[in-house]
């Protein structure tokens, strides 16, 4: 029976060094993402002493909020194996919609909470249309949301008549984003943290998250299991749209204005944030925590390079390289295996 003991020893040894249980792998991956962010912060702090003061960090975090919130919503869509290109101009359209409801001049002058609800509703509607096209009409997510991105863009321009709508006269609106319930921390940052918790619960602790991931991994198996995959997939897009609506509120609050042209490229930042954070564009895997860290990482790169005096154009090149690196890391991590 010596062979049996041998087997045990060998497998035991191998197990200790080689096999990391799946659930720890996720923690390690998240740790890596945080580590990269810390390294960036240290790097920029060393390169320029202006980087690491609280005023700069605070504005960096404030700038991360919009991308962070959009990345949170996008995580649900990407989890299903889809993509959503509407966060950028969806943000423009929802902020214009909210502004029309609440602005004193050029708007209806309604209470702020109606504006907030209006933006949420507009965002959810945008998401519902996206979801309907993808899920029920079976359009390719890339094409359907690309078209809807144009629709959102045009709608924003039409609604605002091509002009910026000022919200300076709406008392207290700017406080949503830049007020400080906790001294030194903009409210928007608190909202991002709160929404991250909400999104985390939705993704990990409720049926919509579970089904989104299941659909992204194997839609047909999920359908055969008796799950109404179309409805749940549509819901993922509705969540994405709703988060876009929230980003519209925070953006217009921060600027005290709704700009129908502001939003171009934001969908790319949101996708980049999700990817940097470890969400797989192939679907079936999403990280809420990673999406937030990803958004902060992007702003850290922009902010740090600005502080160092690197031109705006070059910052975009650097960000593109970082996204490529993140995708590459994803491929290496999977070892080329299909999900």
């Amino acid at each position: 029976m010596t062979t049996t003991t041998e087997t045990a020893t060998i497998t035991g040894k191998r197990a200790r060094f080689g096999a990391i249980p799946d659930r720890y792998k996720a923690f390690i991956q998240q740790g890596m993402v945080v580590l990269v962010l810390i390294m960036l912060v240290v790097f920029f702090s060393v390169m320029n002493s202006n980087f690491a003061n609280w005023g700069n960090i605070s504005s960096l975090l404030l700038a991360s909020v919009v991308t962070g919130i959009q990345a949170l919503g996008l995580s649900f869509v990407i989890a299903t194996g889809g993509i959503d290109l509407t966060p950028g101009f969806g943000m423009a359209a929802t902020s214009v919609f909210a502004a029309l409801l609440i602005a004193q001049t050029g708007g209806l002058g309604l209470p702020i909470w109606i504006g907030i609800l209006g933006a949420l509703f507009a965002g959810a509607l945008l998401g519902a249309i996206n979801g309907f096209l993808v899920s029920y009409v079976r359009m390719q997510p890339m094409i359907a949301t690309l078209a809807m991105m144009m629709v959102a863009w045009g709608t924003a321009l039409v609604l605002a008549d091509g002009k910026t709508i000022s919200l300076r006269s709406v008392e207290g609106y700017d406080q949503i984003a830049i007020g400080q319930l906790i001294p030194g921390v903009p409210n928007a940052v608190l909202i991002l943290i709160a929404l991250a918790i909400v999104a985390g619960v939705l993704m990990n602790k409720t049926a919509v998250g579970r089904y989104s991931l299941a659909i992204g991994s194997n839609e047909e198996a999920t359908r055969i299991s008796g799950v109404n995959t179309r409805r749940w997939k549509m819901l993922a897009y509705v969540i994405g749209g709703t988060f876009t609506g929230i980003s519209g509120i925070l953006m217009s609050s921060r600027l005290s204005a709704a700009q129908p042209t502001l939003g171009q490229g934001y969908e790319m930042y949101a996708i980049a944030a999700a990817v940097i954070g470890g969400t797989s564009l192939r679907g079936g895997r999403a990280s809420i925590f990673g999406a937030v860290i990803g958004a902060v990482t992007i702003q850290t790169i922009f902010n740090g390079l600005t502080v160092m005096g690197v031109q705006d154009q070059w910052q975009k090149v650097v960000l593109g390289a970082v996204v490529l690196l993140a995708v590459f890391v994803d491929i290496v991590r999977r070892g080329g295996k299909e999900e």
């Binding site: 799946d22 049926a207 579970r210 089904y211 991931l213 299941a214 991994s217 194997n218 047909e220 198996a221 999920t222 055969i224 299991s225 008796g226 799950v227 079936g284 895997r285 999900e339």
Partner: peptide, 20 residues
Amino acid sequence: KYGLILGQDVTANTVLASIG
């Protein structure tokens, strides 16, 4: 192809049809 979510664990697959 039609029965399992390969990337998810035994628990998730076992309760997939009865999450409610």
